[in-house]
Design a protein around this nucleic acid. Structure first.
Length: 873
RNA sequence: GCCCGCUUGGCGGAAUUGGUAGACGCAACGGACUUAAAAUCCGUUGUCCGAAAGGACGUGCCGGUUCGAGUCCGGCAGCGGGCACCA
């Protein structure tokens, strides 16, 4: 059979046995999924004799149906899992459900149902959808975090952590909706208003549980250095989040109303002390609280500060406001000078001491504040190129390096030396000291909600806080709850919270708060190692499988989830559950899946499926005929309705097509633009491969001879270069480039028109290589083609192909010839040609000679196998 | 506001450590096959000038380093992620 026949397969008068049947996606994909399941192809068993590889994608929240972000995430993980399996690793690739969370309660409120019913129904739907994708998952390890068999272990560890001093209770602020009488998540506060009631949000102080993550600040910071297979951007973000900063604690003495005569501030710029023009304390500082009790105006001011809610973004972007207190502070070094003391909305109680000194010339926030309240702006750090007498600060604070001026004993010192000197003088006077502070705050885990893990603690009037005895675990959620009113159903449940105190036996109350859902996702990677263990983890299993070799998920989790999981792993290690301190050795953060957005004239969002192109070329709404405005591409989201349902795509084109499209074109760490044309292109390639496979069956068993004609040898080299390139690209997570290399090989295979036994053997070898390379990405089609080539064994059990190094070397190279850096010619040279020969060949090029006409050659830059650059005068 | 990214043809993107910008895919256009359409196959395709050979310009914007910059440095703009109770 000739190459031409091969290309024009459909409708070819080629005999019935050769006639290409259509690729039946649905039947084929379902059949191979059943085969893999029957053979338990993806069940993982710990085996000390084999190298392990644990690949994990961030498990989904069961929101209803899978979305394209899931498809992208799980396709990438599956490519890694299948590739590593082919390389001989013992691969663990599990899946589960991050099943507690707010949306289930919201759904329960809207549909008058139970969050558990909604959640488990969603899990069933989404499990079915994931199975359609043909993911090589070990489903026997499936877990759902809302199941008592999961959260009872979390409760056990809560008790361990409590015993170890890793947990404590203190007052902390929440967003409070005064109309619905309920706590609001930051997400539920929109422009300072409650999302349902529309009421102005207040802050309220509640007793809450905290994990002592700050005990690990230094460890978590230092260990970032060793996470070499994490993106540096994530490490930098975590570093900044932990925010270690060195500075000074300074104690100011106050004069004013009785009761408070000292105020401690923290500053990272003790060198600027002579530029200080005010002190400011947080609205929640005890000083402010005490004064507010007698000062109604201050009380109002604090209430006003609390209206913005608790999110840092809201606090930082709010207009800077201050309230001048009757206190003044004595300057520590300038006798007789006093500084006014303000209560200010931009000072955070959680950072440092909750009080600052303001140096407007060298801090932007302080400057804005000083301009507003007409406070002095005194420059004390003079930029290297400026003159001390003439240097002034306008709208922009100067935060760069320089020498101190107007600063008494600091004059002339550089910033760092001035910091040290200030601290030394403060220490000598006993009015301050060097201090290291972290931005990181302890992790508050109390939630005033139902659908979460109950906190296993009992409140007794006599005994205080009493941990639930381990024998009484799990503390399960009651099923008979209603969501017909806002607030936590656990708190108003008639019986659930009433228990006898385990210590004294008197009537007592259960803790009705539940845990933050980030707690569940902080240790699920460990649970997957032994998902049915009676203990939280089985030591042998976690010692074998952990850490996760490759973790894959969205960049939006760069800080919170990943930092909490790192902390929790350390806490588990301290309690003797684990030997590792870091959960994820390798991390890859994928981009989002985006799509154009569509709106009607009234501004209502509509889905891509609801619109069509009119004859005029404009888009219109199918149901109403209304014109549609096309907006820019954004992350697919339910709220903007710019979503494409993966199940529809799989039903139309199959899982392989969807997977292939997810991997093509866009680099995996960048956003992917979903387009109809893109998925259609992937579908064409599926069919192109299929036709290519159907024509090769006759060649089975023919060995490739040693001596090959040029064209056949060239194809063979191309095969091995593709194997080398695809392997390298998969290792580096460059799936889009791996796809391009496969396209190149397939193009070469289609263009290969030679006939004869040798050609046929090489062609078959090339086709087998294509199938094996494509296997991790399009597993169903690859398995089907593999079988059709006559293989008895499964492709999933076939080792990864290896490139023959002898076939990778190129004999000739194309060298660029430049004149003064501009390309003038390219020359073909034997590989590793010496400089003299290369220069001669370059200078002989007519185009080069023309460019050098009348010029003197000054020098020639030579980069072997790459470039000859002729530099003239 | 603060922290972290990203920006290359009509579009998605490719380009080892600074060394031929535009691989591969999509779209578009021209052609073959077909009664026709679809599918498939062949070809062209950064912009401008030119019949061609070739030339000039070109990687968000401004500037710098270098024989040579998409890549390094300084500044700016736009877009996106996160900001501790969305997950």
């Amino acid at each position: 059979m000739t190459g031409r026949n091969m290309a024009g397969e459909t409708g070819q008068e080629d005999g019935a046995e050769r006639r290409q049947e259509r690729y039946n996606v649905k039947e084929t994909e379902a059949r191979w999924q059943a085969v893999w399941e029957d053979r338990n192809s993806f069940a993982a068993t710990a085996d000390a004799a084999r190298p392990k590889y644990y690949v994990l994608e961030m498990f989904p929240y069961p929101s209803g149906r899978i979305h394209m972000g899931h498809v992208r995430n799980y396709t990438m993980g599956d490519v890694v899992a299948r590739y590593k399996r082919a390389q001989g690793y013992n691969v663990l690739h599990p899946m589960g459900w991050d099943a507690f969370g707010m949306p289930a309660e919201n759904a329960a409120m809207e549909q008058n149902s139970h969050p558990g019913t909604w959640t488990y129904a969603n899990i069933d739907t989404m499990r079915g959808q994931l199975k359609m994708m043909g993911l090589s998952l070990d489903w026997s390890r499936e877990i759902a975090t809302c199941h008592p068999e999961y959260y009872r272990h979390e409760q056990k560890m809560f008790l361990d952590f409590l015993r170890e001093g890793l947990l404590y209770r203190r007052k902390s602020w929440v967003n409070w909706d005064p109309v619905d009488n309920t706590v609001l998540a930051n997400e539920q506060v929109i422009d300072g208003l409650g999302w349902r009631s529309g009421a102005k949000v207040e802050r309220r102080e509640l007793d809450q549980w905290f994990f002592r993550i700050t005990d690990f600040s230094d460890e978590l910071l230092a260990a970032l250095e060793e996470l070499e297979r994490w993106p540096s951007k994530v490490r930098i973000m975590q570093e900044n989040w932990i925010g270690r900063s060195t500075g000074a604690r300074i104690e100011f003495s106050l004069s004013g109303p009785a009761g408070s005569d000292r105020l401690e501030v923290f500053t990272t710029r003790p060198d600027t002390i002579f530029g200080a023009s005010f002190l400011a304390v947080s609205a929640h500082h005890p000083l402010a609280g005490a004064l507010a009790e007698q000062d109604g105006a201050l009380k109002d001011f604090i209430a006003e500060c609390d209206r913005v809610g608790t999110s840092e973004e809201a606090i930082e972007t709010a207009e800077k406001m201050g309230y001048r207190t009757p206190w003044v502070a004595r300057h520590p070094f300038r006798d007789g000078e006093t500084l006014p003391v303000y209560v200010a909305n931009f000072v955070l109680m959680e950072y440092g001491t909750g009080a600052i000194f303001g140096c407007p010339a060298h801090d932007q926030r302080d400057l804005d504040f000083a301009r507003k309240y007409d406070l002095p702006v005194r420059p004390v750090v003079i930029p290297p190129d400026a003159d001390a007498a003439g240097f002034e600060v306008g709208d922009e604070a100067y935060t760069g390096p320089g020498r101190l001026a107007n600063s008494d004993f600091l004059d002339g010192l550089e910033v760092e030396a001035a910091k040290a000197e200030t601290i030394a003088r403060l220490e000598a006077k006993g009015e301050g000291e060097a201090r290291t502070t972290y931005r990181l705050r302890d992790w508050g885990v109390s939630r005033q909600r139902y659908w979460g893990c109950p906190i296993p603690v009992i409140h007794c009037d006599d005994c205080g806080l009493v941990p639930v005895p381990e024998k009484d675990l799990p503390v399960t959620l009651p099923d008979d709850v209603t969501f017909d009113q806002p607030g936590n159903p656990l708190a108003r449940h008639p019986t659930w919270k009433h228990v006898d105190c385990p210590e004294c036996g008197k009537p007592a109350r259960r803790e009705t708060d539940t845990l933050d859902t980030f707690v569940e996702s902080s240790w699920y990677q460990a649970r997957f190692c032994s998902p049915r263990s009676d203990a939280p983890v089985d030591r042998a299993a976690v010692d074998y499988w952990l850490p996760v070799d490759q973790y894959i998920g969205g960049i939006e989790h760069a800080i919170l989830h990943l930092l909490y999981a790192r902390f929790f792993t350390r806490a588990m290690e301290r309690c003797g559950y684990l030997s590792v301190k870091e959960p994820f050795a390798g991390l890859f953060t994928q981009g989002m899946v985006c799509h154009e957005t569509y709106r009607t004239e009234t501004g209502a969002w509509v889905t891509p499926a609801e619109i069509e192109k009119a004859e005029s070329g404009d888009w219109r709404h199918v149901a109403s005929g209304a014109p549609i405005t096309v907006g820019r591409s954004e992350k697919m989201s339910k709220s903007k309705k710019n979503v494409v349902d993966p199940e529809d795509i799989i039903a139309t084109y199959g899982a392989d097509t969807a997977r292939w499209f997810m991997l093509s074109d866009s680099p995996p760490d960048r956003d992917l633009e979903w387009t109809e044309a893109g998925i259609a292109g992937a579908w064409r390639f599926v069919n192109r491969l299929w036709r290519l496979g159907g024509s090769e069956m006759a060649a089975a068993g023919t060995p490739v001879p040693d001596a090959l004609p040029d064209a056949a040898l060239a194809l063979r080299q191309q095969v091995h270069r593709a194997i080398d390139g695809v392997t390298d690209n998969l290792e580096k997570f460059h799936f889009n480039r791996a796809v391009a290399r496969i396209y190149e090989l397939v193009n070469a295979l289609v263009d290969f028109r030679e006939t004869g036994d040798a050609a046929r053997a090489v062609r078959r070898e090339a086709l087998e290589a294509v199938i094996r390379l494509v296997g991790p990405m399009m597993p169903h089609l690859a398995e089907e083609m593999w079988r059709r080539l006559g293989h008895e064994s499964l492709l999933v059990e076939t080792p990864w192909p290896e490139a023959d190094p002898a076939l990778l070397v190129e004999d000739t190279v194309t060298v660029a010839v430049q004149v003064r850096g501009k390309l003038r010619a390219t020359i073909e040279l034997p590989r590793d040609t010496d400089q003299k020969t290369a220069e001669a060949a370059a200078l002989a090029e007519p185009n080069v000679q023309a460019a050098l006409e009348g010029k003197t050659v000054n020098r020639i830059i030579f980069v072997p196998n790459r470039i000859v650059n002729v530099v003239h005068g």
